[in-house]
Amino acid sequence: MDNGLIQITDLVKDYGEGEARTRVLKGINLDFECGEFTALIGASGSGKSTLLNLIGALDRATAGKVVIDGTDLSDLNDDELALFRNRTLGFIFQFHFLLPQFTVLENVLIPYLIYAGQVTPAMEKRAMELLDRVGLSHRRDNRANAISGGEQQRVAVARALINQPRIILADEPTGNLDTANTENVFNLLREMNGQYCTSMIMVTHDRELAQRGDRVVEISDGLVISDVLKDSSSEG
């Protein structure tokens, strides 16, 4: 696919050594396009996080390839992968994972700081805009662990967007949140996806939530068992 952002080809991932070796991903083929909002669903242990980690350049495949924006991840060394994660990807984890040593505003800026070392006024302005977007500009100077769980997750959304990544990977971003906060964070992601034209891949156990994306990919036992594109065709 020519305008594809991510191409996954025959992706295989094994865990463990020798006898204990188990194949978790058994040959995944998927393409993602720019600006797509994809929900990744499947039973627990089916390999969703494993797939997300491989797309997220956090782990290396046993076989097959992940090509993002023309870059084959297996061609990159560890430092290059780190840089790639920093510049191209945004992460939102199930457990919000802010740094408690820093303020809310500083946490939003950390992906930029890792890259640039120091904050520019323009970046600080951008961080403030994002905080405003997630409704937390009044919390900017709070310690990151002195705000509620839902607020932390919204800060994590702002953090994932600070470097204007091409792709945001979210592994059960609402898994720890109540209904109100789930709604809140999901709407935010959906809006960001529209507004910044960022591709979104979100793992969720919430089928209803999943239906609200552009596309729903279901994984079972390390294989894609369904891939439904909303308002158009479906493919297997």
Partner: peptide, 11 residues
């Protein structure tokens, strides 16, 4: 978490 969002090992 810092490594996930791109800090280098040497950093």
């Amino acid at each position: 978490i810092l490594k996930a969002i791109g800090i280098r090992t040497s950093s």
